[in-house]
Design a protein around this nucleic acid. Structure first.
Lengths: 243, 243
DNA sequence: AAGTTTTTTAATCAAATGATTAAATTTAAT
DNA sequence: ATTAAATTTAATCATTTGATTAAAAAACTT
């Protein structure tokens, strides 16, 4: 849920009496794992552990519903240390959010840029890459969508910049293909809506979809494997359909 | 933002010292609007006003990020009255949630059941009805998706029951059409994923989609109007594509 | 006007939560 | 061994927030 919509809580009076000198994060140093294994991955730097835990919980529950105490527990460290490293929940969230988002966008952008490969081939690759990626990060799309709306600040800009060149490139390639009669001309908006809709949506709507169609988890995975082949065919069919 | 994931807060000890006799909600009575108009719709019953406000905020922000005080303010009443009517945030949420969900499902179910209309015609109707509906309730899909995951209790069952007959019916009709060679046989899962993906997803992914494609709000609406015609064509193309 | 119901006001609770602090403790580097 | 850094412990703050209460005020019914 939107971070922006959440009133700051537990925040100090805006002018702190004596703000402690903004400590920089301790430079992480390698250490042997402590005697009692704290949690899962014990041999990561503390900073990493916290970020991983934060990513997991934020992604799963969103900003408002995630407790810093839970993040600390998940990371196998304590609350004090979390705040020592990241100063605040917001800061930690921003970092995780940015990284999450980068990963998500990269899934498309990486493939789309090079000129050599045909549209067909690109679609094929994107769909496969995305389905693989989302199998490992099923909560990411919902997280992105949730935390992006209403958030006009940094993130919006970030998207613009990161995506601008790709968009331009794709526009051209689609237009080209349309002009040459390879495909029925299609607006890039529809193209993207279709591509993402057919590929990413099943992960977003998964709980509903499964219940509505009576499909279990194993079957869902199988269907998504099928879609790696089917979606490109369908996109192709769409782009050759006549109005 | 799963409600279930949120630790109960501000809850009283499980055995209250002297639980006030569970007041039933005051039977709503019609009254003239008070002198000072509280908010927007002043001539609704108080119960209605609260529910509308709750629906708006819950849908917009999710459970965890919504404050009961904000609901009260939005409804133009005070916090005490909200609790007087609905006892707790959870209760209020459940009511809103159920209603929201019903509305959402009805969008499909209503159309799908009658036997007379062809698959083609049904698709046409569903797409149009859904796009119209979502134009007026753009936040609903994300809300549904958010509040449904992890929630195995009431809601899940509700879906099962409400959807079961429709599913059965659709299965049959699709199978029939496939056997008669009208369409390339397609699994109901893929069919649903495609139909909802192409129709509902643009509303879910709207913020990303607009930024990625550089489309403004007005254009978005225009595109969705276009899709009323295009999606059925595309679905048709998909169902006639050969592997 | 009298009586009932609905709503407001204002104060207050208890718990959750984000954050901070100081002192102890552990770990690693020198 | 000494030293510095990293981490834990435990206590504590300040707020937010869901919820309750009692009494006053307003609105409505009869």
């Amino acid at each position: 849920m939107a971070k922006a919509n959440r009133p700051s809580r537990g925040s100090r009076p805006s002018v702190p009496k004596k703000r402690p000198a903004p400590r920089k994060r301790p430079t992480p140093q390698k250490r042997r794992a402590t005697g009692k294994a704290p949690s899962a991955a014990a041999d990561l730097s503390t900073e990493e552990k916290i970020m991983q835990a934060a990513k997991k919980l934020f992604t799963q529950n969103g900003f408002a519903a995630t407790r810093t105490r839970d993040i600390a527990k998940e990371a196998g460290i304590n609350l004090a240390l979390l705040n020592y490293y990241f100063r605040s929940k917001e800061k930690l969230f921003d970092i995780v959010m940015t990284e999450n988002f980068r990963q998500f966008i990269r899934g498309i952008s990486f493939q789309l840029l090079d000129d050599a490969t045909s549209v067909q081939e690109k679609i094929q690759r994107i769909v496969t890459a995305y389905i693989d990626f989302l199998n490992n990060n099923p909560d990411l799309p919902i997280f992105i969508i949730n935390e992006i709306r209403g958030n006009t600040s940094k993130v919006a800009q970030q998207i613009q910049e990161e995506v601008a060149p790709i968009r331009a490139h794709m526009f051209r390639q689609l237009q080209e293909a349309g002009r040459q009669g390879e495909i029925t001309p299609i607006d890039p908006f529809h193209f993207m809506a279709n591509l993402i809709g057919l590929t990413v949506f099943p992960f977003i709507g998964r709980p509903i979809l499964q219940r509505v169609t009576g499909v279990n988890d194993q079957q869902f995975r199988a269907f998504m494997e099928e879609r790696k082949n089917l979606v490109p065919i369908w996109i192709n069919a769409i782009m050759h359909s006549k109005k």
